[in-house]
Design a protein around this nucleic acid. Structure first.
Lengths: 260, 260
DNA sequence: CGCCTGTCAAAGATATCACCATTAGGTGAA
DNA sequence: TTCACCTAATGGTGATATCTTTGACAGGCG
């Protein structure tokens, strides 16, 4: 068909990030190529995630369109999307009510993006990391059972590249290979719910490296563990893949529980 | 806290299920108390999840409003919600394009609901079960570290009740207690991404019992494992809680891998 | 002489808008 | 305390603007 496989991400960053968008509402910008309602959606969603719109607060459509200088339909669309994420509920006569965070659809990539951009970044980061710890070993086991031949070969290749890059000092290249490794495992796991997490994992890994949170000792043990994961998957040994991946995540686990 | 286990739904079944809704479009039913666009949303969402609208298929707003006898705004709202779930993309001039399943937001509770109601129920069920296997042990560990005192007591109570009910023959009561147990662990884990899965876990457990897929031997080993999980959480022993929960899920794992 | 490419115009579908209908929460009086 | 009325805010409608695709046509190149 006409769906080029080149664009293979787009899960977490629907738009090219707010590169130029200031915090100002900029009420009059009708000639924007980016959809008009996306701007409002981002603004309101981020406001809710950051806590500026606390739970229980009541908004109204008219307030929204006045605030952002948009029409009723746009405000309505925004509200509908937010309602889908369970960030708000809309009732007649009561308006739009911001919901408690415990009700949010915290797996929505857009919501994750907003939360990672907000003050509560650390909380979101910790949750995602713990999710990684839970999912990735089982995903590795699934990959050992269900990955395709090409995927197995590519995993072994990536593990070798990781080992090579770990000895050098190129952080960026190492990060890219690391992300590719973990993403490929998730996508090869044969479980679409695991595969759907690949965007989040890459955000977490990127964030970890960028923040310098990662104690950048690509220690031999960790690299060796990566290699064993790939080898176990290639051999179709699910149990070994799972336990090796647990070892990979061991230092991550230690770092996380130190904070908590 | 003030989160009683009584309120145990609301996550997966936003509406009281389609109790009266037939499959017929019923184009003229303006006096329905249930929102009009919810009807269209359910119809289209289910059509996509079931595969009747295959990936790459192009719909149009006009087609939607003709098909369901609704106005443009309702069709648009539906499309926007579906776009939020990444079930479709909407582009100018191209219309609404059904996306490949690999792009879906498979963690959206509504989407899970549709998929569980479709023909591909088994696939969704397997994914959810594997997700349970991955998450619940780590969640139990988190609960051991971060649960409140009330939650720990309640868990021990529920484990005892499970053991009592397991000796009797009341499937329904046992199922209810089992659901409450697993949900409480997820909610006590201190990780909102784990807590958000509680609705899915209860759907899986319910489905498993209803389908008779569960080999209903509430074996002493399993019951004992439940008890050990609760005790470990009460003691704050994360490692023991995690490993005990793995034992609880062991038979689930075996049943799943037999199929796969 | 045939094929390829770049440009231009028309059409088709969403994006946006102003407007009416409906209903539910609040308020005041009996 | 209860009931009825009122108003505020969403639910829903149809029309218009705008943008993107797509098809054709003309010109150039092999």
């Amino acid at each position: 068909m006409n769906t080029p496989p080149a664009n293979d991400d787009g899960a977490l960053a629907p738009q090219g990030t707010a590169d130029d968008a200031p915090l100002a509402p900029t009420p009059a910008a009708p000639s924007d190529p980016v959809g008009l309602h996306r701007r409002v959606l981002d603004a309101v969603g981020e406001a809710i995630c950051s806590g500026r719109y606390e739970a229980g607060r009541r908004l109204t459509l008219e307030e929204l369109q006045r605030e952002h200088g948009v029409s009723r339909t746009v405000a309505r669309d925004t509200m509908r999307v937010l309602e889908t994420m369970s960030l708000v509920t809309s009732g007649r006569r009561v308006g739009i009510v911001v919901q408690d965070p415990s009700r949010w659809n915290v797996y929505d990539p857009q919501l994750v993006h907003w939360r990672l951009a907000s003050d509560r970044r650390d909380e979101q980061y910790a949750s995602l990391t713990e999710l990684r710890i839970a999912v990735e070993p089982v995903a590795a086991g699934g990959a050992a059972r269900r990955a395709s031949g090409t995927q197995r070969l590519e995993l072994v290749r990536l593990a070798a590249e990781l080992q090579r890059l770990g000895q050098g000092g190129d952080l960026e290249a190492f990060l890219a290979a690391d992300i590719a490794f973990h993403r490929l495992i998730l996508r090869s796991s044969g479980n679409e719910m695991f595969a759907a997490l690949d965007g989040m994992v890459s955000e977490v890994l990127t964030s970890r490296t960028r923040q310098g949170l990662m104690p950048f000792h690509p220690r031999d043990e960790a690299l060796e563990a990566h290699h064993r994961v790939a080898q176990a998957i290639a051999d179709g040994d699910a149990a070994r893949a799972e336990s090796a991946m647990r070892e990979v995540l061991h230092e991550v686990r230690a770092a996380l529980h130190l904070n908590a």
